[in-house]
Structures are given as C-alpha cells and as structure tokens.
Amino acid sequence: MHILRFIRKTYQYFVDKPLQTGTVLQDSYQVLDLIGTGSYGIVYLCKDLKTMENKGLKQLRPSKQRKRNEVDIFNKEIAVLRMLEHKNMPTLYESFSHNGNFFYVMSYMEGDNLDKQIFFKKKTFNEKESLLFLAHLLELIDYLHKKDIYHLDLRIPNIMLKNDEPFLIDFGLAKHVASDGPVYSRKAIMEMKLQDYYDLGDILLYLLYTTYSSKSKKALPWTEELSLADETVHLLKRLLRLLRPYSNSSEIQTDLHAAIKAKGGH
C-alpha cells in the first residue's frame, strides 16, 4: 500500500504541475497566483481580462482526467454551483476545457478560511460568539438542504470568514438529490442531512475550544473540559448524535435560540 501511494504521489507531482503565472485561458482569464490544491483540484486567482475583476479558477488535477468517474465528479460540482444563488456562496461564471484540461470560473472570495483564522491569526470565539456563528452557518446549510443539496464536507478550511460572516466554499463532495440523477433512499438522504448536522456540531466544538486553556495534562472529553451552558451542551449532544439526532433545521434553530438566549443573546 505504501509503495502504491508513493507511486501515485510521485505521478501527481510530475503530472499536476500548476499553471504558470501569466498564463491566459480562453483569451479571458490570466493566472495571477496559486491559491491552493486539494485532492481533486488546483485553484488559482485570476484576472478576468474583459471585466478586470479578480475571479477564482479551479482546474481538475491532470492526474484525475484519465478516469471518467473523476471527470464526472468535477462536472457534478459544476452542476451544484450552477444552482447556487447566495451571497455567501460561490457564483459560477462558466466552465470550459483547454488543451485537454477541465476548468471552471467562479467568484473570488478575499480573506482567510476559518482554519487559518483560528490557528495562524489566533482568532477566538467565546460561547455566545460561537453560537451566533453557528446560526449563520445553519442558515447556509438550510438554504442548501431546501435545494436538495448536501455539502458533506463542512470543515473549517472550507469556510471563509469576511466581516465575521461565514462563506461556504469547496462543493467537491456535495451531492444534489435530483429527480433525474441517482435514486437515493429516504434513509440515504437522511444520513446525508445528519452528516451536515454532525459537521456543524464539530465546527461548533472547534470554535468553543478557541478560548479553552488546558489546566490538566490529561485529555478529557469536551463535556468535562468545557464549561458550557446546559442549553449549549444539549445542542452539541444532539448535533453530534450523542442524544437523539435532529431531523430538521427548525429543531436545531429552536435549541440554538435557547442556547443563545441563555448566554444573554436575542
């Protein structure tokens, strides 16, 4: 297994060379910088030479292009983005192929993701701030679920922060339960919904730990380490499936509102 992984990584290193700065695609998009790389894609900052605006450009890794199913996953991501009309999510402008490579162009979001904000800029959230941030995130997830879209990759690197508002990015693993697509059972759909809810709980825990300083050398469960309002503990336990899981967002909103109120919010 280790040898196969080494071969794959070596192959990717030589094949997945990022585009050079200054490269122009479609006579429209000039590559300015490499933003980052993921398991499926390479993302660039580019300039739209027609509007002179900054845009985001995502390329399917060349090493992934040989397999039809990898290309299909990339196309499904494009299809999901095409459905989005929310100011806190990417806007898709167009998709195209160039010299056998696959790309799409989206709105560019300035700023750092939540991961960098917390671990490099040392941003902290107290309990009330964490709950209010979760309320913003829940609104975004509810928007997706009403469109039968499940993100399935809610992690702090996939949340951008601007003016203390969350912006969702990276829909590479998202699934759209379309009438003309794969037939998902009610159980499978509920499991995808619960996965997004579980991830919300995981993110809430991350935020709550930003103001925690360990007094013990022994690692303890969060229920013992964190001093939280009973309402917050209840909310977390249901999100993380330690108690009966939530079945819809209105149930979460009710408990979230109670937790915010307990911390002196409205």
Rank of each mutant, 00 (worst) to 15 (best):
D153H: 02
R8K: 14
K162S: 10
T23N: 05
S179A: 13
Q59H: 02
I141S: 01
V177G: 00
K218W: 10
E110R: 09
N69L: 12
E165L: 15
E231V: 12
N101H: 15
K128E: 07
S39W: 01
Q117M: 06
Q117C: 07
Y104G: 06
L131V: 09
M192W: 11
P166N: 04
G172F: 09
R5G: 00
D170G: 06
K128S: 10
S185Y: 06
N113I: 02
K261D: 04
L228F: 04
I252N: 03
Y198Q: 01
G22S: 00
L173C: 11
Y104V: 02
K123P: 00
A259K: 11
E127F: 09
V15A: 07
R66T: 09
D196L: 09
D115H: 15
I118R: 00
L207K: 12
D164K: 13
E129A: 12
K175Y: 06
E191Y: 12
L236C: 02
R186N: 13
L240T: 04
E85T: 12
Y150E: 03
D148A: 12
K193L: 15
V177W: 00
I42P: 04
V233N: 03
P182N: 08
L19M: 02
L194H: 10
Q65N: 10
F74A: 06
D202P: 08
M83L: 13
P157W: 01
R66D: 11
L137N: 06
A135C: 11
D199Q: 15
P18R: 05
N126V: 03
L205M: 13
Y206K: 15
